Simulated scan of single mutants.
Amino acid sequence: MSNEQVSFGYEDVAPDEKTRRVGGVFSNVAARYDIMNDAMSGGMHRLWKDRFVRRVKPREGETILDMAGGTGDIAFRMAKRGAQVTVADINAEMLAVGMERAEKRKIEGLNWAEENAEALSFEDKSFDAYTIAFGIRNVTHIQQALEEAHRVLKRGGRFFCLEFSTTLWPGFAEIYDAYSHKVVPKIGKALAHDEDSYRYLIESIRRFPDMDAFKAMIGEAGFVQTRVEPMLGGLVAIHSGYRI
């Protein structure tokens, strides 16, 4: 038997256990996804997502895989630019929220797929771009997911990842750390009756590789011209790369 351990927040658990517990977290928060993101970002996630999509530059008719995008936040923005977006998520409850939101907003033409980022069902070289926003840190084997992203991209395909990281701004880092660890779980308890899920989501940020380390992982997966664009000193970062 394997003795491999992976992080679930501040705990180290078996890979299967992490996959199961992360699934439980997102099943719990699916219906309150906007509340979760507002609590964790002070409402700024909407601006970050707008900026992220501007960097992706979705174009009319191109195919884009939006991984871990169940609720549609990124996909809706890209579909408005004319891209053909496949929204993929491992969590059926998150996808259900996204499909309901799309119907209410009368957004058509999206494809919805229940997929594991580590073992995608799509053929090699299927997409012009791959996006993942606030999802990669919850993947059990991150390197494997990056390699799958590389596999399903066409030559010249673009990889873009939006994720929380570690701010390097003196002073602000301590303020945000106190806010996230002490306040966010209490908000989760008050608004969503779920303190534990919110605590995990904050802890998962602390265990995620820093900007340079994650950039190196993207390069190891085969991407070139890798770069990182920090926001708020690195509290959030846009990582990108290309398949050649």
Score class of each variant (00 low, 15 high):
D16A: 14
E148D: 06
F26L: 08
V152M: 05
A133I: 05
N116K: 10
H181A: 14
C161K: 00
S121I: 00
P230M: 07
L162Q: 11
V152W: 02
N28V: 04
S197R: 02
I136E: 00
G222Y: 02
H45A: 03
S7K: 12
E229L: 13
F76R: 08
T131N: 07
T166F: 08
A88I: 07
N111G: 14
N116S: 15
S197G: 06
S197M: 02
G135Y: 06
R51W: 09
H239E: 02
S121T: 15
T167V: 08
V53S: 07
D38A: 04
A190S: 13
D16G: 15
S180K: 06
M217N: 02
H150P: 00
E103H: 12
G69Q: 03
Y33N: 14
Y130T: 01
A145L: 01
I35A: 07
D194L: 04
I244H: 05
K57I: 06
I205C: 09
G43Y: 08
G241S: 08
N91L: 04
V6C: 04
T19R: 13
D177I: 00
A221S: 11
K104H: 12
A39P: 02
A31I: 00
M36K: 00
P185F: 04
A178Y: 10
K154V: 13
R206V: 08
L162H: 11
V139K: 01
N3V: 11
M78L: 09
W112F: 13
D124T: 08
G69P: 06
W112C: 10
Y33G: 01
N3F: 08
S165E: 06
A133W: 03
E114C: 14
K106Q: 13
A96R: 13
A92I: 12
M36W: 00
M1Q: 10
D89Y: 02
G61S: 10
E17N: 09
G219K: 07
V184R: 03
G241H: 01
F214T: 01
M99F: 01
V13W: 04
P15W: 03
R59Y: 02
H193V: 05
A113T: 10
K80M: 10
